[in-house]
């Protein structure tokens, strides 16, 4: 895994060929396409039998879209994307309680990813790993509130490790996609 971001400033909105990149303003069609991608990946994730013996460990494919949106359009649009994605995917494939869990995980992870990106100390891999870990922490916090016991915390080590591993995988994919997307 090599360094991808170095030397390419975020403010330079032109790609290598000198074509103007789409700016940070809100494009409904663009946003809709990203939302559709996020929903498709939510669905794909329910199809993949990614089960390694412990419940709650997920690949977090949609985080790929959220990370790309964060890098391309900034935090505000990524946040709206994350929220709409959680609500729609929850009604389509999940339940009300899954919306609650995803919303907490999604909001916390987006805030932390935005902070990690803004600090400039992490590459897209690090930002994605921050997102994976904090997503799981957010869900554990909701689980603690729901069962009103700190006992759920015994599950924390498993989710920390899975968050950082899936985060690294998603980061690798995001870096490759980002290289090939002229707009992103």
């Amino acid at each position: 895994m090599g360094d991808i971001q170095e030397g390419r400033s975020d403010k330079d909105r032109r790609d290598e060929a000198g074509r103007q990149k789409p700016g940070r303003q809100f494009h409904p069609a663009f946003f809709g396409m990203y939302l559709a991608l996020a929903l498709i990946l939510s669905y794909v994730e329910t199809l993949i039998p990614f089960y390694i013996g412990v419940p709650g460990v997920k690949l977090g494919l949609t985080n790929l879209i959220i990370v790309l949106m964060l890098y391309d359009k900034g935090m505000a649009q990524a946040f709206v994307l994350s929220c709409t994605r959680v609500i729609l995917a929850g009604f389509l494939f999940g339940s009300l309680s899954s919306i609650l869990y995803s919303m907490a995980g999604g909001a916390l992870s987006l805030l932390c990813m935005a902070a990690a990106k803004k600090s400039g100390k992490f590459s897209i891999y690090g930002v994605s790993m921050v997102g994976g870990v904090t997503h799981n922490i957010g869900q554990i916090l909701v689980a603690m509130a729901v069962v009103e016991s700190a006992g759920v915390a015994y599950y924390l080590p498993v989710l920390l490790v899975s968050g950082v591993v899936t985060g690294a995988l998603i980061g690798a994919v995001a870096a490759e996609v980002k290289k090939r997307l002229p707009g992103a």
Binding site: D3, F122, Y125, G126, M129, V133, L156, L160, V161, V164
Partner: peptide, 24 residues
């Protein structure tokens, strides 16, 4: 991956090990 990414990776794994130790 940058150096800070590796530091984050190590820190999370260390935290997981610590929590696991506390649990045991």
């Amino acid at each position: 991956m940058r150096r800070n990414d590796w530091i984050w990776l190590g820190a999370v794994l260390a935290a997981a090990a610590v929590f696991w130790g506390i649990y045991i």
